[in-house]
């Protein structure tokens, strides 16, 4: 498969191609249709044919109602639900963003202190025991996951509000933990929406 450059000396050089504006225009249109039209169209049709569920956004349906996408985190305030990470976008996928606050920015410290003190009071633990992903805002603002530790710290609250035994809720969390693929790829994590759907499947939340 070697493809070293060969000498052209024996072929007579052809005339320069015409590279006027009109021919550049023509070339541009052809290339735009090929690269911006044909390529994405075949890509989308093939992908949608092969993976129809993923193609439309990995949506989850419950009792005939679309309740979310497995890829998109949701805002949970009801104490009977597990909560996700702080979001700079209010979990609105049309405004996806991180906080973009630098580590030295006093605003970041102030936000983190407010969050940490609220969580420390709610879970009755020292702030230094709160998993960092519950203090740090995500990159997308719609991170669907939390760490297993961040789920476990919420077990007691969720169990109490729902009137369920803690062991049952803890087992639910353990069942929802996704480990790194082959022990290498990614971090251990829990999809908050899936966890809450599993929770709802056990019975309605204790609060209205």
């Amino acid at each position: 498969m070697t493809a070293k450059l060969q000498a052209h000396r024996h072929t007579p050089p052809a005339e320069l191609p015409a590279t006027g504006w009109l021919s550049s225009m023509r070339a541009a249109l052809v290339l735009i249709l090929l690269c911006g039209g044909l390529y994405p169209l075949t890509g989308v049709w093939s992908a949608a044919g092969l993976f129809p569920h993923q193609a439309t956004g990995s949506l989850i349906e419950r009792d005939g109602v679309l309740v979310g996408s497995v890829l998109v985190g949701q805002s949970f305030v009801d104490p009977g639900y597990f909560r996700g990470r702080p979001s700079a976008a209010g979990y609105d996928p049309f405004r996806v963003a991180g906080s973009n606050l630098s580590p030295g920015n006093p605003q970041l410290r102030a936000r983190a202190e407010t969050t940490a003190h609220a969580l420390a009071a709610e879970y009755a633990v020292d702030p230094t025991r709160i998993p960092v992903d519950l203090i740090a805002a995500s990159g997308s603002g719609i991170d669907p996951h939390i760490s297993p530790e961040a789920a476990r710290i919420q077990v007691a609250r969720v169990a109490e509000v729902r009137g369920l035994p803690q062991a049952q809720v803890a087992a639910l969390v353990t069942a929802q933990v996704e480990p790194p693929l082959l022990g290498v790829l990614g971090q251990p994590r829990v999809n908050v929406l899936r966890l809450n759907l599993a929770l709802d499947a056990l019975g309605p939340s204790g609060t209205p």
Partner: peptide, 14 residues
């Protein structure tokens, strides 16, 4: 004000 851990501000858990 949080458990020791890497810098997760602006990063995704997965």
């Amino acid at each position: 004000i949080a458990a020791e851990g890497p810098n997760l501000e602006g990063k995704e858990v997965r």
